[in-house]
Design a protein around this nucleic acid. Structure first.
Length: 138
DNA sequence: GCCAACGTTGGC
DNA sequence: GCCAACGTTGGC
């Protein structure tokens, strides 16, 4: 089982939308590095959901429920990939980008190092820190 | 509203 | 194949 993080702009699509649908396709990712991460996803993998824009925080967790498949919103020859996600839960407390940035244990986190990347892998160590922060009182 | 980072496009 | 111009993302 591996951990990932996906970004979304909540005005366009938020974790509430995913929660209401229960399950949804995560598509329209048009970046090669992000595509390469999607390619490595498997059912059962855990996905942190991050809200960009106003929130700038990790807000919840979803689960991968399909293998990667051709993005239905792209031409077949373009080889973009999509995945199906199922809403799992909101974090007990959201973990802000500001907190992540000042935590020494998260220095190498791609979320900080590559601000424009929309799908990324999260190491088990990083996932542990995120979950610990989410369960701690501020 | 501005700007840094980064990807894409097109002229040469 | 290089690089300037331009567009987009996303933080500040």
């Amino acid at each position: 089982m591996n951990y990932w993080l996906v970004k979304t702009e909540p005005n366009t699509y938020s974790i509430e939308d995913l929660k209401n649908k229960r399950e949804d396709v995560w598509d329209e990712v048009r970046n090669h590095q992000a595509r390469n991460f999607i390619e490595k996803m498997h059912p059962g993998d855990q996905v942190f959901v991050y809200h960009s824009g106003k929130d700038k925080a990790v807000v919840g967790v979803a689960e991968v429920v399909s293998d990667p498949y051709p993005d239905p919103k792209s031409a077949a020859e373009e080889k973009w990939l999509a995945i199906d996600l199922r809403y799992k839960n909101h974090l007990p407390r959201l973990v802000t980008l500001a907190e992540i940035k000042i935590d020494a244990r998260l220095q190498g986190f791609l979320l900080v190092r590559q601000s424009r990347l929309s799908v990324m892998e999260v190491s088990h160590a990083q996932a542990e820190v995120l979950l610990e922060l989410a369960h701690s009182k501020k």
